[in-house]
């Protein structure tokens, strides 16, 4: 009976971790605030005032109260895929959050699991868009797919560079421990190269300009999200927010993992976010073929150079 109680408690704790603290609620809050920072900094760059801090929360609440229109000819995956993407991603956010906030937890290979979980939102967007029976949405979905194929290769090269640097550790906890002992990996030549590569890949993952090809509003009118309204759209916006906080946390763990006390964590988070926003605001959108050529050409070569340097111990 005692054991049963313990088991129940364990389950409750897991549920709490998944739904509230490092998981859904927490990362969504952070992501929505980060999304506000994005809008605010963008507005300041354009010499505007920008929205108040609660704007993204208001948008989500408003969307949840709107009607959900299901287009004629849409399949069941149209309504399912937003939730699928969010559920998968929150799992990744929970694993990352637990390694950062409750150090010592985690399992061997959680790095690889997180990389896969972070690709799920893109897949959810693709399935949702391609089952919405809209030609522009399918154009968006095909672009998203090509973009995914493009940025995954250099992204994984950058991650392998970090794995090589920390003596083949594929557990997030070990990577953090290694950096705590020997300094953040971004402060070496190969680490810096890998960081640049990973940052540009994250830019594409988040759908920020110059890689907002799948969702461009002027060209294909919202692209993959064109048919979504009401609650499913709100879920997609939430997924985007969670993805923002998760990928930035992932970058911090991999490249800036030396000091993870709250103050430094927030500082690093905001620093990477502002760099991403500045890249976003100073670059025009690429065409899909240019983006693919960029990812498979210069960026992959740069990633390989970083990897070779890392094996030489630089």
């Amino acid at each position: 009976m005692v054991q049963g109680g313990c088991f129940g408690e364990e389950k409750m704790k897991t549920l709490f971790n998944y739904l509230i603290f490092p998981g859904f609620l927490f990362s969504a809050m952070i992501g929505l605030l980060a999304g506000w920072l994005d809008r605010k900094v963008t507005a300041r760059i354009q010499w505007r005032v920008g929205p108040p801090w609660y704007q993204n929360f208001t948008d989500i609440i408003k969307l949840s109260g709107k009607e959900t229109v299901v287009p004629q000819g849409a399949r069941i995956t149209f309504l399912l895929s937003p939730y699928l993407g969010l559920l998968g991603l929150v799992l990744g956010a929970t694993i990352l959050g637990q390694t950062v906030f409750f150090s010592g937890q985690g399992f061997t290979g959680d790095l690889i699991v997180v990389v896969y979980l972070m690709a799920i939102p893109a897949i959810a967007v693709m399935t949702g868009a391609s089952s919405s029976a809209n030609p522009l949405a399918s154009v968006g979905a095909s672009r998203e797919m090509k973009l995914l194929l493009g940025y995954e290769l250099p992204f994984i090269l950058a991650i392998i560079t970090v794995i090589v640097k920390s003596n083949g550790a594929i557990r997030l906890g070990e990577i953090i421990n290694h950096q705590a002992a020997y300094g953040s990996s971004v402060f070496s030549l190969s680490g810096a190269i890998a960081f640049i590569v990973a940052l540009l890949c994250v830019q594409a993952k988040l759908g920020f300009a110059p890689f907002d090809i799948a969702e461009c509003e002027q060209e294909i009118m919202g692209g993959t999200l064109i048919e979504y309204s009401g609650l499913p759209l709100a879920v997609f916006k939430l997924t985007k927010a969670v993805l923002l906080s998760t990928t930035l946390l992932f970058l911090i763990i991999l490249f800036l993992g030396k000091d993870l006390s709250p103050a430094f964590l927030i500082l690093k988070f905001i620093m990477i976010l502002v760099i991403a926003i500045l890249i976003k605001n100073t670059n025009p959108r690429l065409r899909i073929d240019q983006a693919l050529r960029f990812f498979w050409g210069p960026l992959t070569i740069l990633g390989l150079v970083g990897l070779v340097l890392a094996t030489r111990g630089l």
């Binding site: 809008r39 920008g50 108040p52 919202g222 064109i226 309204s229």
Partner: peptide
């Protein structure tokens, strides 16, 4: 945009 008003691309 100060008041949350945005121009959007899709009527949905």
């Amino acid at each position: 945009e100060r008041f949350g008003i945005q121009l959007i691309g899709s009527v949905r």
